[in-house]
Design a protein around this nucleic acid. Structure first.
Lengths: 230, 230
DNA sequence: CGGAATCCTCTTCGATACTG
DNA sequence: CAGTATCGAAGAGGATTCCG
């Protein structure tokens, strides 16, 4: 009945149209969110599972297999001593990054404050950061931040008006190390609290120049820095 | 007044992330394809139904209501004598156009030749045309084409290196009127047949300058014009 | 222990029939 | 023509079990 060998038919729109085909490929539930999570770097199965609450392990396995068959994702076995298998984007998968960013920017109009049922996931949040990066605030700035948030490690590398973010420990030596939790980090970037008060209340710890936290906030503030800046 | 957050999204990812929110909004099956079909212009219910084979009328009604509630689409009643209600994109909906185009361009790598089960839908095809438009081929060209294809009417207006396409009869007077069917038009743009042979075989009828058909093909040819033909 | 296949319930989809 | 109502089929979500 169902031919299983050829590229899984799954559910197709049966339209000879590139847009429809794109949805055949990445239009199923969870698929694009998995790509989003892999933008910040390779991930293990369990990391993807915890980064997509509600997906169910069977669906995750199915989606990863589809993504692998389609050539958007590839499995790789880390060298010893890690030895674990990770999933990472191929070039074709990485080509989705600008589209995902544009989608995020487009949907900012629907993103109100977090609802009670909403979770704030570190990896997803950092993908969003790339979209919100304000190159103007980075002019003349060259700095590397390492963030420890709820057990995740991120690096943000600012140089020449560019922003590179990644998850996991990087060989780069950071200028500043910031330790906090997700709600606090969100309050900080949403400018519900000031960097100074976050530090003094102990919700954020900074190793290095404390003023770096203010610079970090300015780089990703949701609202323009204010009318004082031209 | 400002829209409030979507009231009851059927199924939500429950993530406070703009990308996830975008998929809450347009990630359901058929939704983005309906937006795609509306890019070329307002449509009636039955046009949307025939432009999305397999959707089922209940789903179409549900999706249109969701899109309306979200403020991406609005209903409008045409003035007499038409009197019919049409659906058209709002500004928020139209803001998806570049993203849809990018998705289409990204998915070109998956779009082989039409499969036996594939349909080629006129409206969808014309959305794709916008993505494939080659401004270089249009330098110095100012021309308006009217195309009659399988009961659909399209206008393609080329001026100053810009391409404007729309569905439905426009007040503009076209320079050329082309009449054909969808398979032939596709063969033409895919350069499986030449404009000359298409005309001489009667598969295409041109009212106006017959050479305009060659210009039209050059504007949207899938392969760069006139390298060495494989 | 991480990675995945298996069951089972629930929701959504898709096609048809039906109504204002 | 523009939808609503209905129902079988398919997919999603969650817990558990299996494999290495």
């Amino acid at each position: 009945m169902l031919d299983r060998a050829p590229p899984a038919p799954g559910r197709t729109y049966h339209q000879h149209c590139p847009v429809a085909r794109s949805l055949d490929v990445i239009g199923e539930r969870w698929t694009l969110l998995l790509v989003r999570d892999l933008i910040v770097g390779p991930k293990r199965y369990k990391d993807l599972l915890s980064g997509a609450p509600g997906i169910g392990t069977n669906l995750l396995a199915a989606r990863l297999r589809e993504l692998e068959d389609l050539g958007l994702v590839q499995r790789r076995v880390l060298p010893p001593p890690a030895g674990s298998t990770v999933y990472e984007l191929t070039d074709a998968g990485r080509a989705l990054e600008p589209i995902i960013m544009d989608l995020g920017r487009w949907a900012m109009r629907f993103l109100g404050p977090p609802r009670p049922s909403d979770v704030i996931l570190p990896s997803a949040y950092f993908v969003g950061l790339r979209a919100r990066f304000q190159p103007r605030a980075a002019t003349g700035l060259s700095e590397t931040y390492e963030l420890w948030i709820d057990g995740h490690v991120f690096q943000i590398h600012i140089d020449a008006g560019e922003c590179i973010t990644s998850e996991g420990l990087e060989p780069n030596i950071p200028d500043v190390v910031v330790t906090t939790d997700m709600p606090t980090f969100h309050d900080l970037l949403a400018e519900h609290i000031t960097p100074a008060s976050a530090i003094s209340s102990g919700r954020v710890m900074v190793k290095g120049d404390p003023a770096a936290l203010e610079r970090l906030v300015r780089l990703f503030a949701q609202k323009p820095p204010s009318e004082t800046v031209v």
